[in-house]
Design a protein around this nucleic acid. Structure first.
Lengths: 268, 268
DNA sequence: CGCGGTAGAATTACAGTGTAAGCCAATCCC
DNA sequence: GGGATTGGCTTACACTGTAATTCTACCGCG
C-alpha cells in the first residue's frame, strides 16, 4: 500500500520463553514483581498477553522462567569458575560472589529466587539448577570431599547465601522502593494497633485486650526515627545498623563459612 | 417472632486486626498465601470481605498483621528468655530456637516473614518488631558487648536464621504442598524448554539458539529421579541430600554461629 | 506455483481479586 | 432520648489469571 513503511511485519515467532522471561525481569527490576502481569509483559513485547501462554504455560511457569534466567547469569559471569583450579575455597568463594552479583543486580526479584518452590527438596536456592548443583557437588568431590562433607558444604553454602543476601537485598530494596508487593501503592496512612502485645510476659490469651494503652505503639516515623524512651538501644545504634558495610561483611562472613567447612574437613 | 432463637445477634465489634490476622494465618497454613484473599478471610469470619478494610486498611496491612502475629508467638513462648540470665549464648540460642519454632509452625507463611519489606533498613527479619530488636540489642549490651560487637551479633543472628530456616521451611513446604503461590494448581504438564543454556561456557548472547538439542533438558521427573548420565553426583547423593537432619544440623550450625560471635568478642 | 496444515498470535469471555464510595443500623455518650 | 460515631454491608470498577475459540501467516509438500 504505497506509503506504509512497515505494516507490522507479522509478530510470528518473535516470542519465546526466553524473551518473555527477559521482559518480565525488566518489569520486575523497574517496578517490582507485582508489575509483571501477563498483560503488561505482553504490552512491553507488543503482543497480546494471552499469547504468552503458548510459551510459559502458566503464571508460575513465567516466574520459574524468570528465576532460571536470573540464575543463568552465572553462566555468563566470567569470574565464576567451572571447576576448582585453585582449590575448593577459591571455587566456592567465586561462585558465592557470582550469586551475590545477580542478587544485587535484581533486588526485587531475589526473593523469588529465594522462595519459589523447588522441583525437589534438595534442589535449594540460590543455585536452583540441576547443572549448577551437579557442578558444585562434583567439584567438591573431585577435591576430595566425601559424601557427608559434600552435603554439609552444600547446605552451608546455600543457607549462608540465602540468609546474607536476603538480608542485604531486603535492606537495599528499601532504598529503591517502588511498591510493596504488587497492586498499587497505598498512601502511607497506617497507625496500626499492633496485633501482639509485644514482649509483655502476660501469657493469658483471650478477652483482655480491653483498651491496653494502645496509643503510640511500635512505630517508626517516616524518617526512621524511633521513640528514644522506649527503644534507647535501637536509637543509639541506629546509625551503625543502617550503615552499608555489606560488601566487606560479605567477604568476612564468607570466609567464616568456608572456615566452618574447612574445620569440618579437618575433623575427619 | 416467636421461634427465632438467635436472629444473628449483630456482628458488631467482633472484628479486629488481631482476629482478622488469625483467620488469615489459618488460611495460609492450610492452603498457602494465595488462598488468603479478603473475601475468603471474610467468609471464614462470617463477614463481608470489605469489612476487613476498616481494620487492616490494606492487603499489605493484612500481611503485615499476619507477620506481626507470627512473630508475636515469641511473646508466648515460655522457652524464650526475656534477658540473659544464663549468659548471652544461652539467650541467643533460646531466642533462635523460638524463631525456628514459629518458622516450622507456619512453613507457608515464613517466606512472608522473611521477605515482606521492613519499616526500616535495620529492622530485619526474622525478629521484625521494635520490641524484640530492642530487647536483643539491649541484652547484648548488658552482657558487655560494645556497639560494633552488638551490631555484628545482630546481623549474624538474623542472616543465619533467615538462611537456615528459609532452606528448611522451603524443603518442608514441598512435603506439604497445597499450591504454588496462589491461584489454582495447574495440572503438572511442563516440559519447559529451559531459558538458560545451563553451564555451557559459550559467552555469545543472541541469535544462536537455533535448535540446540533442546530435548531432554534439565528435568526432575515426578518421583524426583534425575538423569543419572548427566547428573551422576546428584543422583548418588540424592538420598543424603533429601534426608531430614534439620533439627541436629540447626543445633550445630547455631553453635557455629555463636562461636563466630564469641571469637569476634575475643579479638578485641 | 499453489495449497493444506499447523503453529502461534488475537479475541472473547468469565470468575476472582483489591479497593473506592456510599449506605445503614447498632452502639455509645451526653 | 437523640445525635454522633463506629463498623459491617452493598455496589461498583479496574485489573488479574486463564479457558476456549478464531484467525492468519508461514512451512513443507505436491
Amino acid at each position: 500500500m504505497l506509503g506504509m513503511s512497515e505494516p507490522v511485519r507479522s509478530l510470528r515467532g518473535r516470542l519465546s520463553r526466553q524473551v518473555i522471561a527477559r521482559a518480565a525481569l525488566e518489569l520486575i527490576d523497574e517496578q517490582g514483581v507485582g508489575a509483571a502481569s501477563m498483560r503488561s509483559i505482553g504490552k512491553r513485547l507488543g503482543v497480546q498477553g494471552m499469547s504468552l501462554y503458548k510459551h510459559v504455560g502458566d503464571r508460575d511457569g513465567l516466574l520459574d522462567a524468570v528465576v532460571e534466567l536470573i540464575v543463568a547469569e552465572l553462566d555468563d559471569d566470567p569470574d565464576v569458575p567451572r571447576s576448582a583450579e585453585h582449590g575448593w575455597r577459591d571455587y566456592l568463594a567465586r561462585l558465592a560472589r557470582g550469586v551475590r552479583r545477580y542478587a544485587i543486580a535484581h533486588p526485587h526479584a531475589f526473593p523469588l529466587v529465594a522462595t519459589r518452590p523447588a522441583e525437589a527438596p534438595w534442589m535449594n536456592p540460590p543455585l536452583r539448577s540441576l547443572a549448577w548443583v551437579e557442578s558444585l557437588l562434583a567439584t567438591l568431590q573431585a577435591e576430595g570431599f566425601d559424601d557427608a562433607e559434600t552435603v554439609f558444604a552444600y547446605r552451608s553454602f546455600n543457607s549462608f547465601l540465602l540468609g546474607y543476601l536476603l538480608m542485604e537485598s531486603g535492606a537495599r530494596t528499601l532504598e529503591h522502593p517502588v511498591d510493596g508487593d504488587g497492586s498499587f501503592a497505598a498512601d502511607g496512612s497506617a497507625d496500626p494497633e499492633p496485633v501482639g502485645g509485644g514482649l509483655t510476659p502476660t501469657r493469658s490469651d483471650a478477652e483482655q485486650e480491653a483498651v491496653a494503652e494502645a496509643e503510640g505503639a511500635d512505630l517508626v516515623d517516616p524518617q526512621g526515627v524511633v521513640d528514644a524512651d522506649r527503644y534507647p538501644t535501637i536509637r543509639r545504634l541506629a546509625r551503625g545498623l543502617a550503615e552499608d558495610r555489606y560488601a566487606e561483611e560479605f567477604e568476612r562472613a564468607l570466609e567464616e563459612m568456608l572456615d566452618g567447612i574447612a574445620s569440618r574437613l579437618a575433623r575427619t
